[in-house]
Design a binder for these strands. Structure first.
Lengths: 210, 210
DNA sequence: TTATCTGTCCATCAAATGATTGAATCATGG
DNA sequence: CCATGATTCAATCATTTGATGGACAGATAA
């Protein structure tokens, strides 16, 4: 079976894919309720009816966007895991932070949408959380905090969430935070990496030394 | 001069204040675009025209909510500062985390709205950021990272942001994270405090030892 | 009592918004 | 070339939503 999303991911030039790409960005900036189908259609340069033809309703498109983004992020995390495999924990974390941060600054809508889903409600009936894969367990294993994906203790899940969210915050909040520190984009990215390492690495490596 | 907001804050029984209290909660849950004036009016048990009579437009009400919440948070931070004054850094951070976390779990809409403003855009003309006080400089001083409110270096601002956001994340994301760790509310709150201390205290105290 | 002011609601408006219909256009295979 | 299906758009609908006008009730002061 081929879902509409899979089709769109295969051919990035297709109308389906073009709409999806724009929808990712706009939904990421304004959230579900802050986005109108007209905003997306106009940005793509098409009529709203064309958008509906390809994706059905607004909610369907939003769900596809969320799934699409989670697939991309999962893929990136696998890539990171391959690079850091076998290194000592401190290095593993530093490299993970660098790679993940670089990736997310290239696709900030990923962070945006993940945070939107964490912190906001959508006054829409069913939540479609079942289709979203769970990363925390994999990251926990990758950090040496859990042996297998099953039975990760709550304490560990919380720690992983703290690290991941900290990254998303700085990417997604760039428009707000960067004016506060008054630096250009390049410097901001460097500051983010530096800060993340400063905050997170000591907690885990100090613990390891015990 | 007495602004509508100040009047409402004085008499919590007044219609103005009742509307404001509900608006805080609803705006916090659904964001600006996700909230309708009818949702708020219905929750208060009044007609929308009554809401408009007291607060003008939706945007005016939202601005008042944002200001109200920031005043509350600032007040709380002053309270915390008085308690931790003079203690060693590790203790100061532990107590700050406990007090702030307890407060925010009582008023989660504070975290909700702060995060909404960080991470989401509002397709509305002027942003009214000027009216929002800036906390980071005060917190930086309180943590011994800066001597005065002026000229706080970017590195320091970033560290403070990391800590504050980390707290807001766990409060605002409770609906999403708590099911993940499968614990009751009380246990979740304990886990949050524990995790925050685990993550943030080593970074700053280790640095101090140098 | 009467006049005035405040607060509340009912009815309604105008714009925005998600969605659909049907005609026109384009592509592809026969 | 023609038939068929896929794609696109203009026009339109129904509902939602922010907002207002005017009637009405109650309090207060003259």
């Amino acid at each position: 079976m081929t879902t509409p999303l899979e089709k769109a991911r295969k051919d990035p030039e297709s109308m389906k894919a073009r709409i999806l790409a724009v929808a990712r960005r706009i939904f990421g900036e304004y959230g579900f309720h802050g986005t109108t189908t007209r905003m997306i259609a106009q940005e793509v340069g098409i009529d709203i009816s064309t958008l509906h033809y390809h994706w059905g309703g607004k909610k369907d498109l939003y769900e596809s966007v969320v799934v699409d983004i989670n697939k991309d992020l999962r893929q990136k995390l696998i890539e990171v895991e391959e690079v850091i495999h076998g290194l000592p924990l401190g290095e593993r974390m530093a490299i993970s932070i660098d790679m993940t941060t670089d990736y997310l600054f290239d696709y900030p809508e990923v962070s945006n949408l993940i945070l939107f889903r964490y912190f906001g409600k959508t006054r829409q009936e069913g939540n479609f959380d079942s289709i979203i894969p769970e990363f925390t367990a994999d990251i926990a294993r990758s950090m040496g905090l859990a042996r297998d994906r099953k039975n990760v203790p709550p304490e560990t899940t919380m720690k992983v969430l703290a690290v991941m969210n900290s990254i998303h915050n700085f990417i997604s909040g760039e428009n707000f935070f960067r004016p506060m520190v008054k630096v250009d984009r390049e410097r901001y990215i460097a500051l983010v990496k530096e800060t993340l390492k400063f905050i997170h690495i000591p907690a885990f490596t100090q613990n390891e030394a015990k």
